[in-house]
Design a protein around this nucleic acid. Structure first.
Length: 420
RNA sequence: GUGGAUGUGGCGAAGUGGUUAACGCACCGGAUUGUGGCUCCGGCACUCGAGGGUUCAAGUCCCUUCAUCCACCCCA
């Protein structure tokens, strides 16, 4: 127990964190190019924020939140997603007073109490983007385009953008009614899950993977066919903009998102090779969310993408994210006197911005050379018996095996010249 | 939450009731008394995820538990 991490959490060891840092760097660069700015939101919030923001009847709120009471008897929840907090911050800091649209991004851990499996963890990391204040369909396309630029920059191929419109509060009830009427006659032939969905969320039935349900719903009315003119126009326009952005997409009129706040545009980016958890990115428009959290009517669009899921995708496509930075210099020393001198030199080299290391295990000279070799350094500085006695230092080029005796200050200069 | 599979050193992996738990990689040391990458030699699991049980005897059988993986559900 003491030496076991909690279920569904991960330790990322240096080899992996280097890759994470690289991915994060790419994300930040792209955000700068697209004019998105980072917001850092708390890891926990008042529980009500997620209940109202994400939706009372969603799986997330019903069974996946880490909720607890703090010492002040407040109900607190570890954030299961980032949109609700971002909206809260937008309102709390009166960002509606800023020039619109406000384009934000965030990155960090999210928490959901789920049964872990490949690509699904209880603490996982998302990068997400949110745009407030514009209902321009161009923004929907920009947001999707941003995600695609990111994947492209990583070198990923074969990603599929699935696009749908889930309508708005004006047209969705109409569709819901049509759908329920259509399904009524076959209600008892639907799978138990779908029978439960019939009243609660009939849209989901269209998305069911049960073959029997799929058969029944083959000719069911789709959301797209019942969009109001505003939503239909918006959808048409989003498609046009996507084409202009060079983003290939596939209409999936059965795709439904699991969060209640989506309106109009809904999209997913999926990838084949990483198993059942194939959605690598998901998002859409949420024009009613800001208002439902007590703000002025404010349109919004955004997405979240799972950082954990990109690494298996990269691996399966044979893409190596290696940025293994090697050291420049290794100091080899013997005896206390030599080690002290080496330590001083080491710190000086580092102050000059040179990546350097020395032995702290009291190893033999031979073992220190092996270590230097493992670090793949260009130079080894040797402080052995002779050098100590004559107050010089041996500078060995590890590539050519040439070595030359120098004064210490001379060696420092030489390192600065050749390595900087 | 439901169904299924798995669990041997840091990693990979033999072993399917019977003395000291193969091997490879990694790591440490030596061959080379002051010098690396190759080679050779040596070292490295009071113990087989954890706890309990069956048995003269268990890594090997049974139970419980934990964890991982796969599918469902759902999502990123």
């Amino acid at each position: 127990m003491l030496t076991t991490r909690p279920r569904g959490t991960n330790d990322f060891l240096p080899q992996e964190t280097e890759k994470w840092q690289l991915v994060e760097k790419i994300l930040r660069e792209i955000c700068a190019e697209f004019d998105y700015h980072e917001i850092r939101i708390p890891i926990f919030e008042h529980t009500e924020l997620f209940q109202r923001g994400v939706g009372e009847t969603t799986d997330i709120v019903e069974k996946e939140m880490y909720t607890f009471e703090d010492r002040g008897k407040r109900s607190i929840t570890l954030r299961p997603e980032g949109t609700a907090s971002t909206v809260r911050a937008y309102l709390e800091h009166k960002m509606s007073a800023l020039p619109q649209p406000v384009k934000l991004y965030y990155m960090g851990p999210m928490f959901r109490y789920e049964r872990p499996q490949a690509g699904r963890y209880r603490q996982f990391h998302q990068f997400g983007v949110e745009v407030f204040g514009s209902s321009d369909p161009g923004i929907d396309a920009e947001v999707i385009g941003l995600a695609m630029v990111f994947y492209q920059r990583l070198g990923l191929t074969g990603l599929e953008v699935r696009l749908n419109s889930v309508g708005c509060p004006k047209c969705r009830p109409t569709h819901r009614q049509l759908l329920q009427e259509f399904l009524k006659q076959d209600l008892e032939h639907l799978c138990p899950d779908c029978q439960g969905r019939f009243n609660r969320n009939p849209l989901r039935i269209l998305d069911c993977k049960n073959p029997q349900c799929q058969k029944i719903t083959t000719d069911a009315p789709t959301v797209l066919s019942s969009l109001c003119s505003e939503c239909a126009d918006h959808f048409t326009s989003v498609k046009e903009y996507l084409e202009m952005a060079g983003v290939k997409y596939q209409i999936d009129d059965r795709m439904v998102r699991g969060l209640d706040y989506y309106t109009k545009t809904a999209f997913e980016i999926i990838v084949q090779e990483i198993g059942a958890q194939s959605a690598i990115c998901g998002g859409g428009r949420y024009d009613g969310l800001v208002e439902s959290l007590g703000g002025p009517p404010t349109p919004g669009v955004g997405f979240a993408l799972g950082l954990e899921r990109i690494f298996p995708t990269l691996a399966s496509q044979g893409i190596e994210l290696s940025s293994r930075k090697m050291l420049d210099v290794y100091l080899v020393a013997i005896e206390e006197k030599g080690h002290k001198k080496a330590f001083q030199l080491l710190m000086n080299l580092r102050k000059m911005g040179i990546k350097a290391e020395k032995d702290y295990m009291n190893r033999s000279m031979k073992a220190q050379m092996k270590a230097a070799n493992r670090f793949n350094v260009k130079y080894v500085l040797i402080l052995g018996e002779d050098e100590l006695a004559r107050d010089v230092i041996m500078v060995r080029n590890m590539e050519t095996s040439e070595q030359k005796e120098m004064m210490v200050s001379e060696a420092l200069n030489f390192m600065e010249q050749t390595l900087k």
